[in-house]
Design a binder for these strands. Sequence first.
DNA 1: CAAATTCTTGACTAGTTGGTCAGCTATGCT
DNA 2: AGCATAGCTGACCAACTAGTCAAGAATTTG
Lengths: 207, 207
Amino acid sequence: MQVNTAKKTRIRQENLSIILGKAEQIFAEFGFKGATMQAIADAADLPKANLHYYFPTKLALYRQVIERIFTIWLEAADSFDTSATPQEALTRYIRKKMEISRAHPYGSKVWANEVIQGAPIIQDYLQTTLNEWTDTRIAVINRWIEQGLIDPIDPRHLLYMIWATTQHYADFSHQIATLNDNRPLDDAQWQRATRNVTDVILKGIGA
Amino acid sequence: MQVNTAKKTRIRQENLSIILGKAEQIFAEFGFKGATMQAIADAADLPKANLHYYFPTKLALYRQVIERIFTIWLEAADSFDTSATPQEALTRYIRKKMEISRAHPYGSKVWANEVIQGAPIIQDYLQTTLNEWTDTRIAVINRWIEQGLIDPIDPRHLLYMIWATTQHYADFSHQIATLNDNRPLDDAQWQRATRNVTDVILKGIGA
DNA sequence: CAAATTCTTGACTAGTTGGTCAGCTATGCT
DNA sequence: AGCATAGCTGACCAACTAGTCAAGAATTTG
């Protein structure tokens, strides 16, 4: 049975992967409504009807794209180690978020687009998983404050600042490139950006 | 002639204003492609054909919306007083940007959407006006660094951080509200947010 | 090899949407 | 009042697009 399934799904796995990747790109570039199944099909080099064989509707495809992004987000969330010092936890978390912004800019853009438009699809994720995760980190930050390890800042605004700044490098990459002689940031520039962001935030909260 | 024009355009002025306002809202909520002329017409309580009387095409309407937003952005830009101290200039600029995020969330969202999608419409604004403005402020920040008024940080990343953080409160207002018991931030919370952002950034750059 | 299952695809449909237009009404001026 | 200009609008169309489907090709299994 397992062997059977594995063999069955070889082609399937490949096509799913290609379609999801291209869909992410097209959704990021044109928004949900602006992205057409035909455009995604062309990008994936498949006939449109084939897309509907794997994903019954455009919305279903979009949901899968969003879920993949959310998984990556959770991966970064874990790097906010609640048992570490403020310096360690935040440095690692910021670095991870910057790495994700660089590795998955399209995913970040789709997510941003979705939230900007009122999160019609991912509302439940925000209300449950994100809300819970945020509460635990707020508790940790408050403990740091009580212990005098950082300044008494509102933990929520610290988190918003980290999210905003790190995701900005993905979501606004076009603007950043335009102000960088129309070139995307190179390795050294990404490193410098990460260091700058980390330094300012850590120093800014007195860590 | 002038009197004539003024009288002529009374109705026109009113309708233009209503349409642009509603269009901003609909574009923010559904993106360019997702926003329909019919939806904008309904929101403005006008027949669709009437929209096309004032704006020949959807793209023309969108351009006007974007231009209005850009004007507001320029207004904020001026508050970055190049002759003031770092503390004064940045405090005023951040406060202004936070005020705009609160007063014009839809405009900010349209702008964000546009940039995320590669700025197909506003590319020229980025290349010219924004680029020039950025260069002058970079020069100012570098002077501050030379004079030892702030830490030697990359001026670009400081600007990106300010843009990202302040605009986050507009663009991600839905997410912020969700994490705030499903309520938008109230007056006190906006003040607190502004103070937090200002404090962390100023302290973070050693100002 | 033959049967069964999975995958592929061109052609089609129903619904949506930007934009048009001809004729109408309201407004303002002399 | 009468004329000219500006503003309004229902009805319509062409283009586009998500989704369907039936028939065929490829792959796997026994």
